[in-house]
Design a protein around this nucleic acid. Structure first.
Lengths: 351, 351
DNA sequence: TTGAAAGCGCTAACAA
DNA sequence: TTGTTAGCGCTTTCAA
């Protein structure tokens, strides 16, 4: 059972080795190992035993070439450091465990050129489908995707036109809804804190939706602060300190993600700034992380795992089908007011 | 340049299509696209243009089968939700961007059976190497790895015998060192809080090292608390509340990771428990996250990115070489005392 | 139920 | 510098 390497052969095992050990044709071994076609129970057992005792692992490269079928699905995200993406990947993996498809992950670091390179690399393995974050891609990347003739699912965003199918939320709407909730609660001097990354299109869209809804209410973002890189909890503290020292009369801070929002919250609490009495706070993402903070931060769930699951389901469904999906699944994130966004008496606006 | 799909051909493009378009042999096209062999500048340009205008993407399945070379490296980790692993993957990806190797990630969810399945799946693509977290694997998994005849790098742990090479830290030593530091600082009534997961061998080893060093000083862990699943920040709070209500005289809490440690810290601060005066705290991992907390938590850096980089370097070095590495790189994590582990007057031990 | 032949798309090795 | 031939390890197809 484990004597497979008595003589450490350099050559990896092939079907032929198993075929000889079991005394049947390669074809029969192949059938047994794939569980396809009719094989007598006797041969089946014989083959399985031979294969196992040799420690044979089928060569999928040869198999895929011969069958013109690849059970791989390319999954491309901008980053793993941001908690959001591992959660999406988790949702994808969950669904693919139930079907004969295997996700292969690629990371672009928010770089369009890198995205193109990763895409080219992955498509060269002729995957059965591709799931890719965002709707913004270079012209070349879009060409690659279109030419691949496989189901393409663009995820996490719904503001734009997908190449094929899309599953996501509208970040513009998310921004608008949060602005509306803040204004509705009576806050007026509102600051924005976010990432500087010009290539994080979803953060940008949230900001656009936010300012749009503010404008509709006759308001403007009173002050803003941007950051890049580093620990976002610490950055949240620093940015909050900076914006409040510059504009101490702000009564609300909207953060482009929960991590910097949490940092802001900690800064306020440390410095005796009453939340949400003196100042209200809100973030974005609905990270579980928040559950442990001193106050539950107002936020909006980005539907991460659900997006992953839906995307994976779409791929599984359309693999093999010639009718390309063209589906659009737009999820609606739930607003969570938490404990940092509370209605305040109108008088507060000008004490 | 983008007219590649005038007639949406179902058949993907092959070398032959490019060969015909460019008016040269398939072999020449192949050489140009791989940048191998001598090709005249004229043909080179011609081929490149034809290839690009058609939108051709080489079929690596066929290429790998023919050349018996696969530029893939299998990378297997227990989880992505734990910040630690994305950081390791980042280190790996960083190095592989500089060589013609591509990492392919697999996730096991700390499940040995799943590990075996993922391994089998990945090895069936005949990768050039494998990087896998931990030294503990099922007998079958070990057999698979040994038979693969490729460099195997086991990472993140150094307490045990690797199949081939290993890169990691000694978690037993990490536990011992933290215990020594705590005792040295004058703490005596020490509690432990950790994960219940019996399959997180590294957490277990830290605990073992910790109790061992305690015993050597004539001490025992005064109380302990275990958890599973969920937000670890919140869990840290809950566990801390629980252990302190049960054993209010504890003067130190050692957490098996920084996230629950951070939760514990927040709990103490919220409840007016002086840290580190009344009680000291320490975690493990050295997450950047900590930088934003009200107090800098004592911790130990797990050398995550460095482990990833070293492992990737080992693979790149040994790919192609017949002499299998058998290297052992043991990194030494740095103890960071932070602000929650401070020397206290001896009198304190029995006020 | 089993086997034999052909070929998937590419590259190694050799020839021109 | 370019082309030809054979074959990588498997599966499809068809025959027995």
């Amino acid at each position: 059972m484990s004597d497979s390497r008595n003589a450490k052969s350099a050559r990896p095992l092939t079907l032929r080795d198993v075929s000889e050990a079991a005394g049947v044709s390669e074809m029969t071994v192949s059938r047994v190992l794939r569980g396809s076609g009719d094989v007598s129970e006797a041969t089946r057992t014989k083959v399985l035993e031979a294969s196992k005792s040799l420690g044979y692992v089928p060569n999928r490269i040869a198999g895929s070439l011969a069958s013109q079928k690849v059970n791989l699905v390319a999954v491309i995200v901008p980053s793993l450091g941001n908690l959001v993406f591992p959660e999406v990947l988790g949702g994808i993996a969950e669904v693919f465990e139930t079907v004969p498809l295997q996700p292969v992950f690629g990371v672009t670091n928010y770089d369009p050129e890198r995205e193109e390179a990763v895409l080219y690399e992955m498509l060269s393995w002729r995957p059965s489908g591709a799931i890719i974050a965002g709707l913004e891609h270079s012209e070349a990347s879009r060409l690659l995707l279109r030419n691949a003739e496989i189901p393409i699912i663009e995820i996490m965003d719904a503001d734009g036109e997908p190449i094929d199918s899309m599953v996501g939320i509208s970040h513009r709407r998310a921004g608008r809804r949060m602005a509306a909730a803040i204004i509705e609660a009576g806050y007026r001097r509102i600051g924005f804190l976010g990432t500087k990354m010009p290539l994080d299109h979803r953060a940008r869209k949230r900001f656009e939706g936010f300012t749009e809804a503010m404008a509709k209410a006759g308001l403007e973002v009173a002050d803003q602060e941007f950051y890049e890189g580093g620990s976002s909890l610490l950055k949240g503290r620093e940015m909050t300190a900076a914006i409040l020292s510059r504009a101490p009369d702000l009564d609300f801070l909207y953060y482009s993600n929960d991590m910097i929002g949490a940092g802001g919250l900690l800064h306020c609490l440390d410095n005796g700034i009453e939340v949400p009495g003196r100042i209200g706070l809100a973030g974005f993402n609905g990270l579980d992380l928040l559950d442990g903070l001193p106050r539950k931060l107002a936020t909006m769930d980005a539907c991460r795992a659900e997006i992953g699951r839906e995307a994976a389901r779409l791929v599984s469904r359309s693999v093999g089908q010639d009718s390309s999906g063209g589906e659009r699944i737009i999820l609606k994130p739930k607003l969570q007011l938490g404990e940092t966004l509370k209605r305040r008496p109108p008088a507060w606006t000008d004490p």
